[in-house]
Amino acid sequence: MVRIRRAGLGDLPGVAQVLVDTWRATYRGVVPEAFLEELSYEGQADRWARGLRDPTWPGRLFVAEAGEVVGFAAFGPDRASGFPGYTAELWAIYVLPTWQRKGLGRALFHEGARLLQAEGYGRMLVWVLKENSQGRGFYEHLGGVLLGEREIELGGAKLWEVAYGFDLGEQKW
């Protein structure tokens, strides 16, 4: 049985493990190896803890729990994407590879999008690496509309991200 719920400080070691393990599995050969190796469980847990401890942090963090954290998603205000009308953003969503394709990503997405809609947000976007065909397929399956792309730098490498937009009132997901 998997439960989707708001995350607390005690969940952060699991959140960090999901992020690091998923990045290493998904982006090996896409982003520089040194960047992936520099990711650490402690560093990621500390990063999320700073947000959760800050009463002004605008994020909403959810976990998928099955005895342990097996996935998570973070949502919040748009971080200056440049797409008018997209005021909310899916900052991150990751599910351990062994738990993928079981509906957890969709459940995490739905929970955060539902909360954002209840808070008055109308449209949300997400950025995904252009070479991440599995991630892009996930967003397209949920009804995401391709908005544009931008160049970013990760670990000294120049990569491309694409943005997908969602109308939170349509609930195709």
Results as ranks from 00 to 15, higher is better:
Gly105Arg: 01
Gln117His: 15
Gly143Arg: 03
Thr56Gly: 12
Arg136Gly: 10
Met1Glu: 10
Phe75Gly: 02
Ile93Thr: 09
Arg60Met: 08
Phe83Arg: 05
Leu115Arg: 14
Lys130Trp: 15
Thr56Lys: 14
Arg50Ser: 11
Ala157Lys: 14
Ala92His: 10
Gly85Ile: 00
Trp99Lys: 08
Ala113Asn: 01
Pro97Cys: 02
Ala113Glu: 00
Ser133Leu: 15
Leu154Phe: 07
Gly8Tyr: 01
Gly51Tyr: 12
Thr22Arg: 06
Val30Ala: 11
Gln17Trp: 15
Gly148His: 08
Pro13Cys: 06
Val69Ala: 06
Glu111Thr: 10
Arg136Tyr: 09
Glu161Arg: 10
Arg150Cys: 09
Phe109Arg: 08
Pro77Ile: 02
Val162Leu: 08
Arg47Thr: 13
Leu90Glu: 03
Glu68Ser: 14
Glu151Trp: 15
Arg50Pro: 10
Pro32Ala: 03
Val162Met: 09
Trp91Pro: 09
Gly137Leu: 11
Pro97Ser: 03
Arg50Tyr: 12
Trp57Pro: 11
Leu96Lys: 06
Ala45Glu: 09
Gly8Pro: 02
Arg47Pro: 11
Tyr41Val: 12
Trp127Gln: 06
Glu161Leu: 12
Pro13Phe: 01
Lys130Ile: 14
Leu39Asn: 05
Ala107His: 06
Arg6His: 12
Gly14Thr: 03
Arg24Pro: 04
Pro97Asp: 05
Gly155Ile: 03
Tyr41Ile: 13
Tyr41Thr: 13
Leu108Arg: 01
Pro32Gln: 02
Ala49Thr: 09
Gly156Ser: 04
Thr98Arg: 15
Val95Leu: 05
Tyr86Lys: 03
Ala118Gln: 12
Leu96Ser: 07
Glu33Leu: 09
Phe166Leu: 04
Leu116Tyr: 01
Gly14Cys: 05
Val20Leu: 04
Trp173Tyr: 10
Gly169Pro: 02
Val95Trp: 02
Pro58Ile: 06
Asp46Cys: 13
Ala88Tyr: 00
Gly103Asp: 08
Leu146Arg: 14
